[in-house]
Design a protein around this nucleic acid. Sequence first.
DNA 1: AAAAATTATGACCAGGTAGTCATTTTTTTG
DNA 2: CAAAAAAATGACTACCTGGTCATAATTTTT
Lengths: 220, 220
Amino acid sequence: MPKETFFNLREKKRKEIIDACFEEFALHDYQNASISRIVKKLGIAKGSIYQYFDNKRDLYHYLIEYSSRKRYEQIEELFEQEKDFFELIVKNFYMKVKFDIDYPVLSGFQYNLLKERNTEELGNIQKDIKVQIFKMIKEMIRKHQPDYNLRDDVDIDIMTFMVMQVQIGIYDFLEINRQVDFRENVKNKKPVFSISEEDIMNIIKGFTELLKNGIASTKG
Amino acid sequence: MPKETFFNLREKKRKEIIDACFEEFALHDYQNASISRIVKKLGIAKGSIYQYFDNKRDLYHYLIEYSSRKRYEQIEELFEQEKDFFELIVKNFYMKVKFDIDYPVLSGFQYNLLKERNTEELGNIQKDIKVQIFKMIKEMIRKHQPDYNLRDDVDIDIMTFMVMQVQIGIYDFLEINRQVDFRENVKNKKPVFSISEEDIMNIIKGFTELLKNGIASTKG
DNA sequence: AAAAATTATGACCAGGTAGTCATTTTTTTG
DNA sequence: CAAAAAAATGACTACCTGGTCATAATTTTT
């Protein structure tokens, strides 16, 4: 948790600090993100950061909490809607794109977060995040299984993971397949999804269709 | 490329060095892997490493090349077999498990490699690796599409990525869902797949079935 | 055995890091 | 306006890194 001093800052300065930190942690992993670089970019003294946060880890956890909240604000409406499961999947993909366009740097930060390694200092943070996402999706599947014709002959954990893996993987797809340079985008504060809307539509539809019916041309 | 001196070493010592390096790079990402720690563990002088390799990057690339070769030795037979596509998928999963059991540390190294970040020094190495895997799978799909009833109404790139994502993701599945502690396993040189064979079987079958027919209970 | 070539060594360098804290500056309070 | 409280500062510490290179030890060649 940040110290009181941090919350006493006027909004504008607090925002500047948050932005600079997100940028640093979106371009570098935890260990290689540098407090020295952050203060340099902000033009403040190094000691100041430690007036606001206990240490680097404290700062990082605050960023995680902050970005998760922002993301959740955008998707919470999803869970209240009584829609077909696959419509929800599509909707969630869209939300991801929207989040990326609204907050490109946060989006990059979260992309990085999911690749964070298990270390002594931080623990297995990417796992913890993924477990959270996993639980949400699993709950969604459980809810929709009886009514919306989801299979019940395959372990629900495996189904859940499959859905999650495809959703999480879309950034990697763009990187591998659409020559999207995610790092460059963060630098320029451009969205990762800086490709045509039509292309995005087709990708989302494609993945959802495959999730639904598989890659075999006949069922059996 | 390692220097000549490295290949002049007697087999045993060379093996010890390789092992120690793999362990270090399986436990830490590139930036945080430490040459100092490696030489300390080996009980040799720091300068010696630089008699063998130009620099850290050179060493890392050698490890990548080495582990890829080992992995490829195991799977090359797959591509010659004229089997049903989904049998190949299952077989490839098994090969992955086998590789992990035969070379647990290399396996951990490769897991880490796929999470390597895009940096100034290394470039986007995980992307390059994934592009390679992607191409292989795409080629397999293209080959099997007409004969083995793979869909042709969805972009082949999307299909390819889906297959890859599931194959690559199995480690994460175990971490999230089977409480496998991958880092601990590397430390103890135990395979990541340290769960029952029956469980592994079911997971592989489950994923393959979902890839094939999707998560919806009726096609349409 | 002597000379030459190869290999191993580790003190050392320059450069980076997170975090500290006595001091100064700014803001708030009385 | 003065006193008190809060916030900002940046030199400093301790520690780490990758990499160098003159020197020493070892091995190979003559």
